[in-house]
Design a protein around this nucleic acid. Structure first.
Lengths: 192, 192
DNA sequence: AAAGAATGAGACGGTCATGTCTCATTCGGT
DNA sequence: ACCGAATGAGACATGACCGTCTCATTCTTT
């Protein structure tokens, strides 16, 4: 019975292909299947054997990105300690996924088929819950809606990933830059 | 001599076409020339008569967006008063251009022809100068580079425009949401 | 070594958007 | 009313990409 073996190999390939695809598509969202296949070191035929089509590939990438981001949330332990610390941890953990996330966001708009992955709602809910917790604990300001804070989080994460990719921000500074700007804003303040 | 008249009409059409094109392309960056033409109320042939091709249309859109953003900067009087106030004014003035700007950013990546419009550098310079002024006047924190603040500004502006378009943030709150988050951050602070 | 699965290479047809062209029509100025 | 410019409608060729297929080759397993 070679099922388990072949499935295992396919899984490995799948992971690798998705990684390469993400790297290319975040840079240029119109990358062709041929380029993706070549970057992944496989032929276009094999790529089509693993993913029914470009659509399916994007969907798989979406699933993968959602799962990675969910894992980042797990690793950040959003419910532990104060909300600010949790947010800092989340930024650090989510940074590697930022590029894919940004791509999926803009791409989701392209999919006007209406079938949005339910995973997004779960992620949004967890993120919104974090902001709301910070507000309820008196740590975060309440004049900015948690929905907007969620959007802003994604926006800054994407902008940061892009800035690093363009060489305008050092990767080492990224966590600090994003988290500090989000938490403290631009203005200099004496306390806190 | 009917030159002046015809040129005038073409200019009017051009403006209108660019507006419609911007509206469509910000929503879906792969909108076809046909759709753009129909939205602008002209035929595809006429669209091609005004703009040499899709490429030229995007370039014209870029020029238009850059000029609008430059005008927003003028209107915001970046050099007047304290930097925070100037930033607030800029957010307010730049909000209508946010969607186009966001589109042009992601699209510029698609143009890997290397020929980036020099106008971007001028905008970046003015924006960076504002942040630097705030830092030098002791108003803005100095542990975040002005380059990063510039990127973050674009990122938040784009995220805000998107959030409004998706109905997650009220348009009336947008200026306040962006400016306040940028200036003060998420955290609640007693002073300032 | 043999059998079977997976892969690579490439051909093929189909779709879609683009860019160019022509021709009839309409609009505007004189 | 007339004439020229601008437009609309549509045909046409081109090119890119996609999805599918076949066939030879390579590897994996037994």
């Amino acid at each position: 019975m070679s099922h388990s073996v072949s499935l295992c190999l396919m899984a490995v390939d799948r992971e690798h292909v998705l990684t390469e695809a993400a790297a290319l598509l975040t840079r240029r969202s119109t990358t062709s299947m041929d380029e993706i296949a070549r970057a992944a070191g496989i032929s276009r035929a094999t790529l089509h054997r693993h993913f029914a089509g470009r659509d399916a590939l994007i969907r798989a990438l979406e699933e993968h990105g959602i799962e990675r981001f969910a894992r980042a949330m797990d690793a950040a332990r959003l419910d532990d300690g104060d909300a600010a610390g949790a947010l800092r941890r989340l930024v650090r953990e989510a940074e590697p996924v930022a590029g894919v996330l940004a791509f999926l966001f803009t791409e989701n708009q392209l999919f006007e088929s209406g079938t949005v992955n339910a995973g997004w709602a779960r992620l949004d809910a967890r993120l919104t819950a974090l902001f709301r917790r910070g507000q309820e604990e008196g740590d975060f300001r309440v004049d900015l809606s948690s929905a907007w804070l969620t959007e802003a989080f994604y926006g800054l994460l994407g902008a940061g990933a892009w800035a690093v990719h363009e060489g305008r921000v050092a990767r080492n500074d990224l966590d600090h830059s994003i988290a500090e700007l989000l938490l403290g804003g631009i203005r200099r303040s004496m306390e806190k």
